[in-house]
């Protein structure tokens, strides 16, 4: 069987006693979408920040294997190496696209930045790549020179995704990527994400409190409460046959729209 590209064991980051992320085990395989669900304060965003190297854990191990097969110990690696990984091998899609974009740089410049950061020096090629990725995320390429300040929330989010994908990362982290978007815009974004995951063979770790998003996108789910993973399994299994009391409660509270 193929090895996981990301492996966490006993991952812990404790802000206050029993608050944060406690002793989490997690594996992510190539090409799969792992959802982390739970209510506010469950530790899911902390877990995501630990997994993506945005924060260091207090305890535990975290190992990442890049597309070239090299292993990285993300707990012990230098800050320089982490930042490098975050700009090339990882994608990080923030909940608020304004945290993940340069609003006063054009859409094309936003997408091209990572390429220029790893040494791309041909303007024409960089621009061609930007056009390519804009179409991939369904933004009209004619808007390549427009500033994202003037984009809608959904477009900003799609631009953020394009900006992350340009270096062909193997792993993308998303924190509530559809939060703050209205329903039809969400549907369109989720669509785009599903297609990209499939077409590009990337793995995704997505944090969401929206079970509908989880069911649509995630192959497997982790349910978190009070900083711990209380249940995990295939998405449909966790949602259709929840074992833990809290999971049952969570699932029962989903509004059914049939």
């Amino acid at each position: 069987m193929v090895e996981p590209i990301l492996s966490a064991r006993g991952l812990t980051r404790e802000y206050a006693p029993e608050q944060g992320c406690l002793e989490v085990d997690l594996d992510v395989w190539p090409g799969e979408v792992v959802g982390i669900v739970g209510e506010s304060g469950s530790g899911k965003s902390t877990l995501l920040r630990l997994l993506s190297g945005q924060e260091r854990p207090d305890a535990g191990t975290l190992s990442f294997t890049d597309r070239a097969g090299r292993q990285h110990d993300l707990v012990r690696v230098s800050e320089s190496a982490i930042r490098q990984l975050q700009r090339t091998a990882f994608g990080i899609v923030h909940q608020n696209p304004r945290d993940g974009l340069r609003l006063r740089i054009s859409a094309g410049g936003n997408i091209g930045e990572r390429l220029m950061g790893v040494g791309a020096r041909h303007y024409g090629d960089i621009r061609a790549q930007a056009v390519h990725w804009l179409s991939h995320v369904e933004i009209d390429p004619a808007r390549i020179d427009d500033l994202p300040r003037y984009f809608s929330g959904g477009m900003q989010q799609r631009l953020q995704i394009a900006r992350n994908l340009v270096t062909n990362p193997g792993l993308v982290f998303m924190d509530e990527p559809t939060g703050g978007l209205d329903v039809s815009v969400q549907a369109r974004l989720l669509d785009t994400l599903k297609r990209l995951v499939h077409d590009l063979g990337i793995s995704v770790v997505i944090v969401t409190h929206d079970m509908g998003v989880a069911r649509l996108l995630a192959d497997r789910l982790l349910v978190m409460r009070f900083g711990r993973v209380i249940e995990t399994g295939l998405t449909d299994q966790v949602l259709d046959d929840p074992q833990a009391a809290y999971t049952q409660q969570l699932v029962a509270s989903i509004l059914q729209v049939s």
Binding site: R83, G112, M116
Partner: peptide
């Protein structure tokens, strides 16, 4: 410190685009 100079070329890119 980390030679993260991608943005410098972004500035030049923006000039050419504009």
């Amino acid at each position: 410190a980390l030679s993260e100079y991608g943005v410098m070329h972004v500035k030049l890119y923006e000039d050419i685009a504009q």
